[in-house]
Amino acid sequence: MPNELTPAQRVALARHAQRPGTADFIDALFTDFFEQRGDRHCMDDGSILGGVALFHGRPVTVIGHRKGRTLEEHMAYHFGMPSPEGYRKAQRLMLQAEKFSRPIVTFIDTPGAYPGLEAEAHGQGEAIARTLALLSGLTVPVIAVVTGEGGSGGALALGVGNKVLMLENAVYSVLSPEGFAAILWKDSSRSAEACDVMKLTAADLLELGVIDGIIPEPAAGAHAAPQPVYRALDAALVRELAALSKLSPSALAANRYKKFRLMGSKALGKERL
C-alpha cells in the first residue's frame, strides 16, 4: 500500500462528500439494475438501496446503504442511517435472492442505524437482529463490501458475508470514533485519539481476521479517481463469486457460519474458577 495515512485521515476520506456511494458502485459494476422498493409492511426507507441487476450477465441481488448526494437526499435518507423498515426491505430482498438462487452483493456505507424515536418504536434492535440471523443462514453466495463508513450494528446487518472485502480507506468499527470517545472517555472531542486505538482501518481488520481482502485506492482517495477502484473491485468480485459458486448451497451456509463462529476466538483467555 503506497499511502501512509493516519486512521483519522482515513476516517475523513471514508466520509468524504464526493466518495463513491452504493448507487455509483451499482452504476459502474452492474447492468440492468432494477430497484426494488418498500418493506411490504408500511413504507420504503430510501437509506437502503436494493434490487436485482446483472453482474457480467449473471443475475444478482444488490443491497447497500445510500447516503444521497444532495441535501434533500441526505435528509430523506438520514445520511445513510437506516430505520427498521430499511432492514426489513433488505430482509425481503435477501429472501428473494434465496428463492431465486441469486448471489447477494452488499455495499456498506453508514454511520450506523438511525437513532430516532420512531426507529426505536418500530423495533430497530429486532430489525437488525433478524437481518443478521437471516443473512447468516442463506444458502446463496454472499459478498459484503465495506465501501465507506462501516458503523456499528447498522453496518454489520449487511455484513454477514462468505467474503467481506473493504476499500483501502474505508473504516469499520463498533461505533463512530466520536461515539466511542463519548462513551469511554465522556469526551467526543477525543475522536482522533479514538481512531488510533480502535483498529478500524482495512489493514487492522485484515490482521484481526474480520475482513478477507482490501481493494486498493489511489493516494488521494477513491473519489479522486474512481475508475481504477471500480476495476479492482470488479475483478475481486468476479474472483470471489467464481470461487463461492463452486460450493453447494449447504456448504455456503456452513462456510459462512464457520467464518463468523471463529470471530474473536483469539480473544479468549482462561481464569480458574
Partner: peptide, 12 residues
C-alpha cells in the same frame, strides 16, 4: 468498547 470490532462481530 475495549474490544472494538471483535465485540461487534459477536452480534453476528
Amino acid at each position: 468498547m475495549q474490544e472494538g470490532i471483535l465485540s461487534l462481530m459477536q452480534m453476528a
